[in-house]
Each structure stands twice: as structure tokens, then as C-alpha cells.
Design a protein around this nucleic acid. Sequence first.
DNA 1: ATGCCACCTTCAAGGTGA
Length: 260
Amino acid sequence: MKIASWNVNSVRTRLPTIVKWLEDAQPDVVCLQEIKCQNEQFPAEAFEALGYNCAVHGQKSYNGVAVLSKYAIEETMVGLPGEMADEQARYIECVISAPKGPMRAASIYLPNGNPKDTEKFGYKLGWMRRLRAHAKSLLGFEEKLVLAGDYNVIFRDEDCWDPAVWVDDALYAKEVRDEFAALLWAGFTDAYMAKDGRVHQYTFWDYQRGAWQRGHGIHIDHLLLSPQAADVLRGVEIAKDARAMEKPSDHVPVMAILDA
DNA sequence: ATGCCACCTTCAAGGTGA
């Protein structure tokens, strides 16, 4: 089965682009970020027509995450433990009836955290700590688990074109990179690092400054796997062609192939 | 130091992203 993560930068604006990509790539499960709409505005019918079930955690104007699945969605949880009721919509987790048994998949839109000298940076760090605590508790289930999303972290220097551009940025801050490392070391395998690992393979290119044409991107979208999911990982792919589509998102899908 | 682009809300222009 193929599971993808994609920050679509508005599901309504992007719908024709998303539908075309789904028809071409045929992923079985898709974790979407930045849907930028409320639940009732989510274009579920368009995805259902392609054979997907939908679980949505929306929000007006900003953020919002969703999971599409060709298999039954058995359970859905929204928000991280410890969140306030009015928290930003950045986390949704589903148990999916995959062909070879249940699999848990989460769609994650980690806060950007810029500018670094504001409360936004503290919110990002707090959010990362809550994610790590929850992720550790999920590992205790010893099941196939995929944490897929836009992590807003430039983890390696080679995950961007020029680190000098990012030294004062919240995506490159030492505290943020250390926190991402701590999440990995809790027991996760980054699908891309396990099956590819090449440097300068990006998942985001800014709309500005001709970033796509110049090849100035960053690698910030990841699929993190529990040991039980890593055991059945067969391949990984960054769908770079999606950045050259009509009305593209600034992110492209990242996909893992699992024997699950 | 800011805007460069593209999105949001809701018609004008400011907030947000990375």
C-alpha cells in the first residue's frame, strides 16, 4: 500500500490539482495538511468519488488536517493530548483497516514558529514536546504507525540549498532540530532516510524569488514509522513532478510504500 | 529592511506562511 503526506495549501483552491495527482499516483492513504477550511467546507464528495473515505479536522482560514483512505477508517482522534478546546487544527490520527491488518496514521502540521523572538516560537517548541510525548505513548501499542506531515524543521544542513539563509529562522533553530532528533530517537524511522537519504532532495519550494526554477527548496515533509511499520517499508518517493503542475502547492507529496 | 508569491477573509488591505 502507498501512504502519502502532502501539505496542499488550501484543499478548495487546490482541488483540481489534488484530484489529478490522486488519479495518477493512486495512493491508498493520504495525509493532508493546510486544508484551510472548516469541516463542512471540505470537498469530501470529490474524494469519495475516487474511492476514499475522509476524516477531517478543519479550521476557518488557517491550518486544518485530514486523512483520506481507500480502506475503512475505524477510529479518529483530533488534536494532541493536553490541547485547549480552541487550539489550532494541526493533528488528526486514524486507525485504518489496511489489507494486512490495522494501521495507525496521523496527519501532522507542525507550527512554523516564526519569528523566533515571539510567542510563536515557544508555541512551536511546546507543540513539539506534546507531539513527542504522545508519539512515545503510541509506540507502546507496538503497532504499525505512520506519523506523516509537514514538520517545519530543516533537520540536516543539506536539507536546504544554503544554510546561511536559515540561521535565524525557526525552521533551523537548534532547539527545534534537537526536538526533532529526540522524536526520532524515541524509536521512529524516517522513511526517506531509510530508503533513500540523498541530500538536497526537497519537498517545499517557496512561490517567491523563483525558488522552484532556481532549485532553492527545503526538505521538511516526513513520514516517521514505528518499528512495526519500518519492518514492512519497501520504498519511498518524493513526488517532485507535482511542483510543476498547474496551480501547484508549494509542497509536494512524499510517499512511502508499505507491505501492510 | 522590505517585498518578492499565494493563500485567507470578504471588497481592501492586512494577516499568515517558510
